[in-house]
């Protein structure tokens, strides 16, 4: 599976609340960040957790967010950032 997004591209995390073993933290859902690295294909943990194959493997991305965009009343500095590893099935073009 070739990666849909490239380094530097802006991506938005899907707003979805499926049950099960999900590795996308709530605090980034619906938030927009930027791809800093494409980590290559990894088997889908949402499938692996239930004893299935996890195939097809999904591209995994490092996505950087401005921390102030993640929290309404963030008390830190404006340049603070948060990097989260997110599988491609959770990302869409903004």
């Amino acid at each position: 599976m070739s990666a849909r997004f490239a380094v530097g591209e802006t991506v938005t995390v899907r707003v979805a609340f499926p049950p099960g073993h999900v590795r996308t933290p709530f605090f980034v859902r619906g938030k927009t960040g930027r791809v800093t690295e494409v980590l290559g294909p990894y088997r889908n943990p949402e499938e692996l957790a239930y004893g299935r194959s996890g195939e097809p493997a999904l591209p995994l991305y490092r996505v950087i967010f401005d921390t102030a965009d993640l929290w309404d009343d963030y008390q830190g500095a404006a340049q603070d950032t948060t990097v989260v590893d997110i599988y491609e099935n959770w990302l869409e073009a903004p």
């Binding site: 590795r23 996308t24 980590l39 995994l60 921390t67 830190g76 603070d80 950032t81 948060t82 590893d85």
Partner: peptide, 15 residues
């Protein structure tokens, strides 16, 4: 210092 960027890494996946 305020002018340092604090970068938090959340190990959510395979790394």
């Amino acid at each position: 210092p305020e002018d340092v960027e604090v970068r938090v890494h959340d190990s959510t996946a395979d790394l």
